[in-house]
């Protein structure tokens, strides 16, 4: 990706973040963006815990910060201080962290179509959608996202669930004249199903990377064994060997860690989603 595209991605993300978290945009030009942060946004982005402690303890009216963010370092605003935003900048990383922290769980209803409303009451079908982050770790690392969804009525599991529902429109309240069907699976059972499914999928993958890491590990352990022969070593040397061996394990030992990015309940309109 060219720098320009990368910067556009960053700007687009920040603008959407600012709207989503109730910040006010004071001025927006092609090269910069001037914004008045909301209180939650300030807390997340500006890293000033002592200020917030002070405001709370003394019960003062909080004054969140204004930020002027430049996306084009060659044309910053001339009349006020501004900071350059690019993907690696600390501030941008704070935006990403904040977004991840506050967008974890949701429960949404697909927007009801006006046309159907008059025709009586219709059911929603409930899905549990979880976005998993799978990390393959040895002395190197790779991530993969799995967007799984499970139907809480039928137990059916689909992959790329999030991609499929992304283009739909959603609301947080159950619309009038609509109802949700009783669930056959509890969410905790459903989650177990998803984990089981994912575990099986992962175990079927090619784990050449892990084999290679294990080979490297055992090669280096052998080298260590030769260097510190068991027989003629004093306590200090053995300790050194043990420490070095633990370091090797820390460095190479292959493992897979699964985290949850976010997830929630998605109530699909049965009239539309078939």
């Amino acid at each position: 990706m060219s720098n320009k595209v990368v910067t556009e991605v960053a700007r687009n993300f920040i603008e959407r973040y600012l709207y989503a978290y109730d910040c006010q945009i004071i001025e927006s030009t092609p090269s910069y963006l001037h914004t008045q942060l909301s209180i939650p946004a300030d807390r997340d982005l500006c890293n000033r815990p002592y200020y917030w402690m002070y405001v709370e303890q003394l019960n003062l009216p909080p004054q969140p910060i204004q930020l002027c963010l430049t996306f084009d370092p060659e044309h910053p605003p001339t009349d006020r201080p501004s900071e350059w935003i690019f993907p690696g900048s600390q501030r941008y990383q704070h935006f990403l962290q904040s977004a991840k922290r506050h967008g974890r769980f949701t429960s949404l209803f697909q927007n009801a179509d006006e046309n159907y409303r008059r025709q009586g009451s219709y059911p929603y079908q409930t899905w549990l959608g979880i976005n998993f982050l799978v990390s393959y770790i040895c002395e190197q690392k790779r991530d993969q996202i799995w967007e799984l969804g499970i139907n809480l009525q039928s137990g059916e599991i689909v992959e790329s669930f999030y991609q499929q529902i992304k283009s739909l429109s959603w609301q947080t309240q159950l619309p009038p004249n609509r109802f949700t069907q009783p669930l056959k699976l509890k969410y905790i059972e459903a989650l177990g199903e998803l984990e089981c499914y994912l575990e099986e999928k992962i175990s079927l993958e090619d784990h050449d990377w892990a084999k290679q890491a294990l080979t490297r590990l055992s090669e280096e352990q052998e080298q260590l064994q030769d260097y510190y022969p068991e027989s003629q070593s004093n306590e200090e040397v053995l300790l050194e060997k043990k420490q070095r061996n633990l370091q090797l394990v820390r460095q190479y030992h292959p493992r897979i860690e699964v985290e949850v990015i976010n997830g929630g309940f998605f109530h699909l309109d049965m009239l539309k989603y078939k």
Partner: peptide
């Protein structure tokens, strides 16, 4: 509960931070 827009932002933030391959350097675009 977060709304749909915030939920999407969280997913996209994670997407931007993932390491797609073992060997491709990520630091250059940062």
């Amino acid at each position: 509960w977060s709304n749909w827009e915030r939920f999407q932002l969280a997913f996209e933030a994670a997407e931007q931070q993932i390491i797609p391959q073992f060997d491709t350097l990520q630091c250059l675009k940062h």
